[in-house]
Write a protein that binds this DNA or RNA. Structure first.
Lengths: 342, 342
DNA sequence: ATACTCTCTGGGAGCGCTCCTAGGAAAAGA
DNA sequence: TCTTTTCCTAGGAGCGCTCCCAGAGAGTAT
């Protein structure tokens, strides 16, 4: 009966052909103003929308980007990091009139069933891969399926992929120098998982900064898993060695560390100063407010989309790595004298 | 040259027809074991994946669900609520072998450009609409495009849509009764935006509970916008009227309220008890730890997907509203005597 | 022997679009 | 006036899949 609207039908009603309607719908040139107007009014009154699948089949492009967040981190989705990242990515995606497909891997088992769908032809024009752990197989799959992709973070293999990252190493180094500059002598580190490049870089940056300041960690290193609880556990252990400063490689681990310090009857920042990485938590959420190495997550997401778009368009062909700087945001937890702003 | 693999080509290599390959790929019956095996091995060694667009065109189904988060809330994406919700939704989506398309509206301007893409044929099989404000036009569009959809939250119009919600009203009522049961006599309310059904329901539930306890709010009501800052502002104003209990309609507003209470030189919970709604914040993030009306966000997301799936399949035809109960989680901020668990 | 059923396989038709080519009409030049 | 160029439009072909029907072959009942 009322069969679906299609180009042919719209053309019939406007007294033109399929092709002309297609040109109007896609904003192509070489259509006379009056024809265009007539077609547009028919489109408007019928509410016609071209069929995405047919378009994908005929043009071999879908207008859809994929965002892949692998299994290791799905449980960490509470982290404000991902919300902010998605906000940046969707914002940029909307801007270029595309839509976003979200692939969140729940566990390893999902991987096998999801990867094929990610690389399936006719579904995605390109993929953003985030939070890669070392040796993530997905990248090889994408390469094999010659699907355009961009990695957020520093990929483990020796480059030759497009990537967007923040200066984890430099940021962590800054944290060390800042703490040292405040007169702290016994720094400690709550590191992020060492199977992630961010974890590795933040660790090596901090270690490097500590050395540059003429100090030493003396084994005051524990590894957490990004979460509050792991930060708390790590801090409890570290406190036995009486550190006067702690750098936690994420906001959430820092919150746990502060909690451990307080519960041990010590004061933060008086007895132990704390600096975190991320700078994403609302300041009021922690007390004392956290001094952080802030990373521009939203910008990273936006940039990844734009970069991916140019890979898809063929504008970008030589793999490049974009690295965003971090910024030290001084609040209360490091014990720095704050300049009052009236 | 190397043209794309398709059913025909796989069939050629396995010595069968297009149709047979299709049946094998889709796990349909009536294929002999040896034929099936032969086709499967060709599929495996070629890495063949059917073209999603072609499939969509021919079968009129895409295997993709949409999740729509309208403009009003995009800026609130920091809220752990959405992360948790997405986790539930993607989990359930993976389980039924579908993928998720995320539509995050940045601002009102986006709406016009995104809505058409949401209802475009051949892209989505169904849509989950979340965080609806009153009078959201999207629902009408979806109905007009006869696109299956499920609303998360209580839709404003008089039902006749499928929806999944939590018992906002009952939860808020419980909060009032709990505070009253602890001997508090001067309750105050930091309400959520009254253009959302959740805001309305939590407000009316709390008001109702206060009345049921024989108490009165006496105008101690302020409306926030879900954020820490708005909760803080609201609490600052409310403190002038010396409340001894505050119910904040979200975790984040509660955090702001506690901050305001503390900065006013008062003690939480001794001077002012606080109960929040959501129960999503990691307990260590707030001090004192927040007593909350916890809502099962993840379950809501999962249920919405399953419900949507049955609408798509035609299993569910009569609109139904699923309502999940909330749970009072007692921690420190309400001043309740905690039973020690050894 | 015939008829009937059931399982398995092949191929036509068609989904709605884009791309391309051809041709008509109008504008510009000879 | 006729030709050439430019602009606009129409329709064929084809993208890769699903759906459906027809038919071959094997097995069972009459």
């Amino acid at each position: 009966m009322s069969r679906r609207l299609n180009l042919e039908e719209i053309g019939r009603r406007a007294g033109v052909s399929r092709s002309t309607v297609s040109r109007v719908v896609n904003g192509e040139p070489n259509v006379s103003p009056q024809t265009k107007k007539r077609v547009e009014s028919v489109v408007a009154e019928t509410g016609f929308r071209p069929h995405a699948g047919a378009r994908s089949l005929a043009s071999n492009s879908t207008g859809v980007l994929g965002l892949v967040i692998p299994s290791a981190v799905a449980t960490l989705f509470d982290d404000p990091y991902f919300g902010r990242l998605i906000l940046g990515i969707t914002g940029a995606t909307n801007e270029i009139q595309m839509t976003l497909n979200l692939f969140l891997f729940g566990d390893q088992a999902d991987d096998r069933s999801i990867i094929p769908r990610v690389v399936a032809p006719g579904l995605l024009d390109g993929v953003i891969v985030t939070a890669t752990t070392m040796g993530n197989p997905l990248i090889e799959y994408l390469r094999g399926a010659d699907m355009p992709f961009v990695v957020i973070g520093r990929p483990d293999e020796s480059a030759s992929v497009f990537s967007v990252d923040v200066d984890n190493r430099g940021g962590a180094r800054t944290a060390a120098l800042h703490l040292s500059g405040l007169g702290r002598k016994r720094p400690a580190l709550i590191a992020a998982p060492s199977n992630t490049t961010a974890g590795i870089d933040r660790r090596s940056g901090f270690v490097e900064g500590v050395a540059a300041a003429g100090l030493s960690l003396d084994g005051r290193i524990r590894e957490g898993d990004w979460t509050e609880n792991s930060g708390r556990k790590a801090a409890e252990e570290l406190l036995a060695d009486r550190p006067d400063a702690v750098f936690a490689a994420s906001d959430r681990m820092a919150v746990g560390a502060v909690r451990a310090i307080t519960e041990a009857g010590l004061s933060c920042p008086d007895d132990v100063a704390v600096v975190s990485f991320d700078g994403l938590l609302h300041p009021d959420l922690a007390s004392p407010r956290l001094t952080s190495i802030a990373q521009p997550v939203r910008e990273v997401g936006e940039r990844a989309v734009r970069l991916l778009k140019s890979v898809i368009d063929g504008t970008a062909t030589i793999p490049e790595s974009v690295v965003y700087p971090t910024e030290l945001v001084v609040r209360e937890s490091c014990g720095s004298e704050l300049v009052e702003v009236s």
